[in-house]
Nucleic acid binder design. Sequence first.
DNA 1: ATACCTGCAAACAATTTGCACAAAC
DNA 2: GTTTGTGCAAATTGTTTGCAGGTAT
Lengths: 157, 157
Amino acid sequence: MSTHDVAQQPARVDPSSWMQAVQGAWQAGGLRATGPRLRVLQTISRYRVPFSAEDLYAALKARRDDRTGRATVYRTLEQLHSAGWLARIHQQGSEAGYVPSFPGHLHHLVCTSCGVVIAFEGCALDELVARLAAQTSFAIESHLLQLYGRCAMCRDC
Amino acid sequence: MSTHDVAQQPARVDPSSWMQAVQGAWQAGGLRATGPRLRVLQTISRYRVPFSAEDLYAALKARRDDRTGRATVYRTLEQLHSAGWLARIHQQGSEAGYVPSFPGHLHHLVCTSCGVVIAFEGCALDELVARLAAQTSFAIESHLLQLYGRCAMCRDC
DNA sequence: ATACCTGCAAACAATTTGCACAAAC
DNA sequence: GTTTGTGCAAATTGTTTGCAGGTAT
């Protein structure tokens, strides 16, 4: 059982285990746990829906006395995303947003009404991949899969 | 058999049938076939790989004497995308780009080396959708699926 | 001590908007 | 002739960069 053993069952990412996991990875990778970075991390962990870089920057600025600069926000997002701690969610109409995630092969189920995101694993695409590989001669290596619908709370409104 | 009956087999979109189909849809929808729009359409139809709005604008500007403005490019892209004539391709590292497509339920297979895009239908996700619906109580309505790999030409380099 | 990080401000890039003029139907 | 579309330039908005100084280890 790994430290961040997520979404055996579909589930929202737990904010505090996510924060802990990221901090562990930072330490392991020699990245410093600075004040601004930790504040960014905490602010992210409170999001339940996809957010943009500017959303995050604005949220930080909302706390008075916060001096975190845009550069730190963008640089931290970049680091987290490339290390797999943030997933990009592509909503139909609107722009893409980030959501806390864990490194590895995960997919997402997104509520088109409230925006809540559920991660899951297992996508049963092997047959499709085999068929397409045969038909196209592509060497298929990876895929992006996101599902959209209305969550239990929103479907009854 | 519909006018734009595509990707029964996985295939690149055919530039000229795509242009014809779009022009038909414009006419049917009361959109005027103006010079600038047709030039945008033709330029798009020549792309074999995902392109951005600025790529397209630059390509138009490359023809001397072209007066097409940015606004026209952006507005036309917006129209084509929202009507389903352009699909957004999300490459792993880089930014998203557009690719000619047809309205309807299509997915894409993208070469990570040369960028060529193949459209296909049929994704066999019913079982997965049923399982997730049961586990999460979401009413799942749609999904985004893109596959990545190396095409026949690129895999041998 | 010494990397690594930070905020700032300016540069850069991408997209949107208002509006007078032009073109399609 | 009227409605729809257009180019332009300016306004917005989003993102990156250079650098002098600060801070975690």
